[in-house]
Design a protein around this nucleic acid. Structure first.
Lengths: 343, 343
DNA sequence: TTGAAAGCGCTAACAC
DNA sequence: GTGTTAGCGCTTTCAA
């Protein structure tokens, strides 16, 4: 297919050394004379020699590549995480093989198979379904280092994620402190088997002695403002309407904001809304969005460090580590005190 | 590192056949008996055999992987493109190696080197600088199929991109038709050596007989709402202020919207603004954004098809193909007629 | 300090 | 139909 690329052998032939010497020289071995090295390096540069990493991988039994599998990257926060991961990995000499599951476990299994076939040295994965992890945990059978980018309950794998439950609780408490008691939640967690945010929300209500109400808990599968709008239709149909909404991601929150614009509700005067993720755009929403956020670089950093550590450990078994980073409320304009005359 | 994975040899030993027969059987060759195949497949399944793609790549001299290099993916439209590309490639049996240049040519060169080292079969690249393409064009020396995801002027490579110039012209014409004559542009193209949008803007003015004014042309390097705000500070300092703004990307437009909010300008009554890219959230901006957009899937589809075609062509040289997809104005709320009493 | 030989896990060419 | 041999481009013993 491609023009025959120069091999070690070729530059060996042109310089008169053996392939072994050439290999040693190019890798900066101290065994080889400076003079020899120079000769060899020149010859290599002249033909634009680039070592074949594939051959290298085969003999060394390591590919210096890792697999990154995400659900989908329509959520900008995942995008930023992915980019940070790639940058860090690249600095450490690793390539990243990228795959998406589109939130489908079958796709995920396929992606994982492909990555294993390519003999990646490790895997970073944001699982499609936090309750169906068997195929991921099975990677351990081959001692393939893996870290989960989400805190799946009871996972026997390394985890680096965000304190979702606590973040959700803080968000809800923020609303409660503003005087709200009828607080709706739009949650997408169940979709991937993740009840963390819902739990955090319930924690906060319980702690404040507020009874939870099924009519205020809406579950939506996906990540899109449309779903936020749909949820609002249901939420505001209740006879005792909420005065505040906790949207489990910023996209939902935008949908809520949009619903309010369409229905003439003022935010935060008529309705408070808080989001989750703090995507860059949330500052520019119809009403600048109060939300709870984290630093994707921090997440990426921990995940990469841990994965690389596991890879370097080799066979030495280490107990799975569970790491979670903090979330912080970013106060903007979409939440405010409950009005006296409010429902 | 990893527990020794089963090899062809192992399952050959366990079944009593030769490695060759096993290889043939597992690849579904008609040469091998059904009975034999079945035996072999069972044995393979039992040990969870997964062919080593690295070894395969080495002997077949093709990796069935392609390199995708982007500048950075903070622009959601690039994100969508990337995801679409990965999905399509995966369906065709290709893995995608992902790299980012962060808009830095040095990084780009490094990424390209890494990809070549890994012997990718082809490269899809959104170049950091549309005027510095030499290192990319050099890939042709090794007959490494490459398609550019942006229309660099005078490139000797295959290109799949959007009709930026025309899109920019249409956007500006839209503003002109609304009665605006003082139209500002915030352009980021120069940053990557791309004057397409600026050209389109000038085309439209010229066509309408409106003199262009340097004071209305602001160049900003990057992709962020902040830059849009900064640009507005400069734009609105002119003694003859613009009544409409063409922002060369949606992030800039959000900055403009925010500036207006801060300065008490109503959009579109006091100022019209049109963006570029139609990122998902533009519908949820402070004022729903009128912008010009395209379908990233269409772009991805063309690029992948072309690249795969080039790869399958092998050495047969084909003239570079230049493809551009159409853009369409998405009318929302941020543009309106120029008011009589407006400056 | 350098070279020869073996081998990573697979496919391809050729026997039988 | 199935086995044997060679070889992809490298690194890794082991000699010299």
């Amino acid at each position: 297919m491609n023009r025959p690329r120069p091999r070690l052998k070729d530059i060996a032939a042109s310089t008169g050394f053996s392939t072994n010497t050439v290999s040693l020289a190019l890798r900066g071995s101290p065994l080889v004379t400076d003079e020899t090295r120079q000769l060899i390096e020149e010859a290599a540069a002249k033909v634009n020699y680039q070592p074949n990493e594939i051959a290298k991988s085969l003999v060394q039994r390591q590919s210096r590549s890792i697999g990154l599998v995400l659900t989908n990257i329509t959520n900008p926060i995942l995008t930023h995480t992915a980019q940070a991961i790639e940058t860090m990995l690249s600095k450490r000499g690793y390539s990243t093989l990228f795959a998406t599951s589109d939130n489908n476990v079958e796709n995920e299994i396929q992606a994982l198979d492909a990555l294993q076939g390519r003999r990646v040295d490790g895997i970073l994965i944001f699982p499609a379904d936090h309750h169906r992890l068997a195929h991921i945990e099975r990677l351990n059978n081959f001692h393939l280092p893996t870290v989960l980018l989400a805190s799946a309950p009871g996972a026997t794998l390394d985890v680096v994620s965000v304190k979702e439950r606590q973040g959700a609780r803080d968000a809800t408490i923020h609303l409660i402190q503003l005087g709200h008691t009828r607080i709706g939640i739009i949650d997408s967690g169940h979709w991937m088997g993740n009840a963390q945010k819902l739990q955090g929300y319930l924690d906060a209500l319980a702690q404040a002695g507020i009874a939870s109400d099924e009519a205020l808990i809406i579950k939506k599968s996906g990540y899109s403002p449309n779903l936020g709008r749909e949820a609002m239709d249901e939420l505001m149909a209740a006879k005792d309407q909420p005065t505040a909404i906790f949207a489990s991601n910023d996209a939902f929150a935008f949908g809520v904001l949009d619903w309010c614009r369409m229905h003439g509700l003022a935010v935060p005067e008529d309705l408070s809304v808080i989001g989750f993720d703090n995507i860059e755009f949330s500052a520019y929403a119809a009403t600048p969005l109060t939300t709870v956020g984290y630093d994707p670089k921090e997440l990426a950093g921990l995940a990469v460090e841990r994965l690389l550590y596991l890879i370097e450990q080799g066979d030495a078994q280490t107990a799975p580590l569970f790491q979670q980073i903090d979330l912080e409320i970013v106060l903007r304009k979409s939440t405010g005190p409950r009005r006296e005359n409010q429902s």
